[in-house]
């Protein structure tokens, strides 16, 4: 998970999924290119998504013929459990 979060492009992907959950690869690529000047290829974005999915931070769901990506912040709970936020 820490490796997944270490990459700035992957953090931007999570930002965009926070703004709108459930996006196609195409929409994510559009957002990265148009809003964040990320010039990575579609294949590179797809590989970033694979890393995020491997870390459990992104899930994919097929809906008919389309595939959508969703954010899952569940794994982040491990961070707060390991290093509790001081109040």
């Amino acid at each position: 998970m820490f490796k997944a979060l270490a990459d700035p492009t992957r953090r931007v992907i999570l930002d965009e999924l926070t703004e709108r959950d459930g996006q196609t690869l195409f929409e994510l690529c559009t957002r990265l290119a148009m809003k964040h000047e990320v010039t990575s290829s579609r294949q590179a974005i797809s590989q970033h998504l694979d890393v995020l999915e491997g870390a459990g931070l992104v899930t994919t769901r097929r809906d008919g013929r389309y595939k959508f990506h969703y954010i899952d912040t569940g794994p982040l709970r491990a961070i707060a459990q390991r290093w509790p936020v001081q109040t």
């Binding site: 996006q23 196609t24 195409f26 929409e27 957002r31 148009m34 389309y66």
Partner: peptide, 22 residues
């Protein structure tokens, strides 16, 4: 499959044409 999205000065959306294309 993509609701209206404003980014970089343009607005886009993507729909299914029922004939196998977006």
């Amino acid at each position: 499959t993509q609701e209206p999205l404003e980014a970089g000065g343009v607005t886009t959306a993507v729909f299914d044409d029922t004939c196998g294309n977006l």
